[in-house]
Design a protein around this nucleic acid. Sequence first.
DNA 1: TTTGCTCTTGCAAAGCTTTGCGGTAGAGAA
DNA 2: TTCTCTACCGCAAAGCTTTGCAAGAGCAAA
Lengths: 337, 337
Amino acid sequence: MAKRHLSLKDLASELNISISTVSRALKNHPDISPDLTRKVQELAMVRNYTPNPLAMGLLRQETRMIGVIVPDLVTHFYSSIISGIEEYAKSKGYFILLSSSYESMEKEIESVSNLLKARVDGMIVCLSKETNKFDHFLHLIQNEIPLVFFDRVCLSETVPCVIIDNQDAIEQIIFHLHEQKYKRIAFISGPAHLNISREREIGYLSGLKKLGRKYDPSLLCSSNMLISEAVQIITGLLALPDPPDAIFGINDMMIYAVMKELKARGIGIPEEFGVVGFADEFHASFVSPQLTSIMHPTHEIGIKAAELFFKKKDDPGFAETVVLQTQLVVRKSSART
Amino acid sequence: MAKRHLSLKDLASELNISISTVSRALKNHPDISPDLTRKVQELAMVRNYTPNPLAMGLLRQETRMIGVIVPDLVTHFYSSIISGIEEYAKSKGYFILLSSSYESMEKEIESVSNLLKARVDGMIVCLSKETNKFDHFLHLIQNEIPLVFFDRVCLSETVPCVIIDNQDAIEQIIFHLHEQKYKRIAFISGPAHLNISREREIGYLSGLKKLGRKYDPSLLCSSNMLISEAVQIITGLLALPDPPDAIFGINDMMIYAVMKELKARGIGIPEEFGVVGFADEFHASFVSPQLTSIMHPTHEIGIKAAELFFKKKDDPGFAETVVLQTQLVVRKSSART
DNA sequence: TTTGCTCTTGCAAAGCTTTGCGGTAGAGAA
DNA sequence: TTCTCTACCGCAAAGCTTTGCAAGAGCAAA
């Protein structure tokens, strides 16, 4: 059991003055004589006094903690964003309370509830892949508890969001694969209720259209983003009468799995088959062949999300959606020219 | 600005009874009539009352928050351990306050101080690679604030620790490479003040000795675990009059970089050169060739660390060091037979 | 000497919960 | 009718900080 922390009372009784005098002296209140102020501040310094955030929180009705809910904690994409949020929050004197939804709506609801019990001042959230109802967030909105979404978002009319330009990102991929003379480009998308799936599918269509290419529905595969599905899907695609010769996916995991399967079948990357990933900047350059991939500005997403959080806190009506640009980094896996 | 949360006072005034009666009714105190108890509990239910943790904290002198400090947030090794800690903590009704030292002792000291200001009930820490002084932790110990170290540890006479059997892990690697007929095995170690470096170097020596092999100091390379160093070191090793034909490292990052350099030089893995990594179970199987690697029981490390934390909290004298076993997973990068 | 200021400092309440102790009403007993 | 229980319930303090207001001392002016 930890010893009690030092309180104003301790300092006060040591100096034989009242608590309120100590409190004022510490913040250089003009009511307190310079002499006493100096004495109090010196003692506070040597004793290493820091105000009790519990008491302050009770008084100010705030905890200076931001709840952050992500689908998982171990993916580089999320941990990097968390790192950005943490950095900005820390600079504002705020802490982060982390919670994982494990890609489950049920656990997400539980997380919201837990964070609420902990009295966080607000939340920054990336939806789980299952989330298709939003009552738990509406509840926050009704109670004017600041909320920000990033990447996988909803309710963007009332909630500030940070997203990437998904349509543009996919178009970049399509244009690149087109340039590389790949004839039939497949896309492993995600669940239809996620904005990232919808927006990227739009990009898939618009990209093909801009190039005057035909859209073949059999090459646009929905998924629940499970690795096992990836293998199944690529198997199915290869069995098509007119199979694709290039593929990209909703995230890197799926694509790594696809690469593994292609290699196992002895299909040459990039000669016979072009492959493009989505976003794990770090490892993409270590797989072999190195993976062409869309770079997410993860750190910036985190910073921006935190920034929007504080704006929302100061202005309940605020509901901007920030769209960040991505960049296609071309590496071996899709470069055959 | 969020609306005020519901308090006992609100419930009390709604029912025209006193706060203390509400408090007792909610915990089924026998002093309160069954009738009133039922009425209070029903109201609390529909109003969705949850006790204010700030008030509770003030009263009980605890925040139910555990500070967790790791060298970085984005490495799979750490995020997976954090995930384990979070899981166990949550089951005990505790939250985690996360902080990164960014591998800097200065920031680590700052993190300790910040978490202390936040009044966490204790901390679970993995030392930064720079940390060679421990005053900031001694301060915690003196104030009887529960502390647990994992992986990179110190002060293990007074602080519970969770480590892996580093010597055994390295011996496994050595034995395996020996079996694969590699003649000269190099090791990129870390800074000498870290236990993981020392223990693994011991394993390096003992492993060689057990096999009756000679130890060549020029093959044991110290480093600060920077990727740039890895390239430099492998370059130096290859320039040796009698260069190594196998290598393993203190972590995966270093080894990925080495692999990249070897591939760039056209050196065949595993035929000409055997490579073994350390611990990033997930990506190791996606690099090419797939990387033989020591598997850390990351999740278990997290769970165990949290477990020790609660033991330490209940028993200030507690200071056990838990040693977890690792497992060598053999993949392509070192399997030439 | 008394009144009126200025300078300093302390009291107390609010924010929320728990809990020891005191208090009230009603019923039963004398 | 009066006393004594029992069954219920409320007061108040503690944990810590901030801040409006009151209060005290000391000094100058009337």
